[in-house]
Design a protein around this nucleic acid. Structure first.
Lengths: 244, 244
DNA sequence: CGCGTCCTTGACACCAGTCAAGCGTTGTGG
DNA sequence: CCACAACGCTTGACTGGTGTCAAGGACGCG
């Protein structure tokens, strides 16, 4: 099964085969969106839930001076906005970074789905709680780590997340981001992002070319970045707990 | 009514008087915890939900070199960990910063509460989604704003959040944090936090003394910090939406 | 009164931002 | 097929914001 959406949610709950079928059916209705297109803008209250099925997208906020902070990367299988309904409106923008396949699911379908399957409901909440956990780790990354470890840490995260949906090998992973986008996500300038990558290259930790990231020694890279993937919660479905 | 917990949740849902009574009853069983005490440690899976009723606490993570990043401030009325159950374990620490009154609610009581009152369930989810929204804004703050605006922005946020639970006036707000803690939360050194505060003082924007923050011109401060409180979702209960 | 904690200040080094220019690749149109 | 534009990557020079180290001062508490 190569549906990234189902693969992702399977990390968050023990899905029955009926659940998987429903999710696959729903996520089949993709629409192709070209790169650099806003999917949702600040202040909107979309009635559909969006879902990235291929390509890279991001959440971001703009400041008055035009600078932009990327708040999260949305990889294949990621929700854009399950649960906006509870807050009433969205406080940031979501845009594609590359060409993407996107699914739009009417709110009521999601409601039906979660009402009829506790596992799916659990997985949806799991997904947003993991998003929150990632945000916490990003904050640590930005606040405490020097530039080289910061970049290395992000590389490790993306690799693991891509692996979780079957889109990365043990030693490599697609990396379609420009250095400007990388900088915007890590709070550093384009120029500094470039120099930092060179640095990692010179140390023999990674190769980055042709939109592909290669890891020469992933264990060493993780040690260097002080990376512990526990915050991604990718391997403990067994631990129960129920959605309220 | 001066219960910060009820006041806070009331921002997240239209609570009936029955709901309020139940919440008040539950949050009455406080326990006093002295400053600098860990409430929850990384990796734990507590069976009770904790709640701060007075004082300041924080979420934080430690790095190998001993540096610490404060990920969130927990003010009176804030949950420590509703919904840990879904993730199975917690990925960060929570500690008191000042002396605090804390409530520990057994997991099953929360379950009962949310099962019997959709409004309370909605408010609980609203609360964690707002936490996530705050994290996003913190990330923007750390990534894009210079030190002076960063500090000013945090001041604005704390002021509004304290006002929301009835603990701040229009022009002042309790501020028991040390400059070291402030630095840890904003990703800057103690020394630089100090210099930045001096800077704000010299501009006549704030007075900070005796654990009390005074605002001379809150509108000007917000303009300076580019602060827009919408991300706190404190004033739009009316916009419906249902918990899944 | 003495100790600890927190705040304050100065000197100095360095990480990282900005400005600016050049290079390589890709794609497009004449 | 080549010229050109657009975009992304790379590099250098210079500046400035922040971190670190160190020392002293203010305040509160026992």
């Amino acid at each position: 099964m190569s549906n990234p959406f189902v693969r992702k949610l399977a990390h968050g709950a023990l899905l029955g085969s009926g659940d998987c079928e429903k999710l696959e059916k729903i996520s089949a209705r993709t629409r192709t969106v070209e790169a650099h297109t806003d999917l949702i803008r600040e202040g909107e209250n979309p009635s559909e839930v969006r879902l990235v099925m291929s390509g890279f997208a991001c959440r971001y906020k703009l400041l008055r001076d035009g600078s932009r902070q990327i708040i999260a990367f949305l990889l294949p299988g990621d929700f854009c906005d399950v649960h906006v309904a509870i807050l009433g409106h969205i406080d940031h923008n979501i845009a594609t970074l590359t060409c993407c396949d996107v699914v739009e699911i009417p709110g009521h379908e999601i409601l039906d789905l979660t009402r009829h399957s506790p596992a799916i409901a659990h997985a949806c909440w799991w997904s947003t709680l993991v998003d929150e956990s990632i945000l916490r780790e990003w904050l640590v990354n930005m606040g405490q780590r020097p530039a080289d470890k910061r970049v290395a840490h992000l590389f490790c995260e993306l690799h693991l997340r891509m692996q979780a949906v079957g889109l990365a090998t043990d030693t490599s992973c697609p990396f379609p981001l420009t250095q400007a986008q990388l900088g915007d996500s890590l709070g550093m300038s384009l120029v500094h992002a470039n120099r930092t990558i060179q640095n990692l290259r010179e140390r023999g930790l990674v190769t980055l070319a042709k939109k592909e990231l290669q890891f020469h020694d992933i264990a060493e890279l993780r040690r260097f970045a002080e990376f512990d993937g526990a915050y991604l919660y990718l391997d403990d479905v067994r631990s129960a707990g129920s959605a309220t």
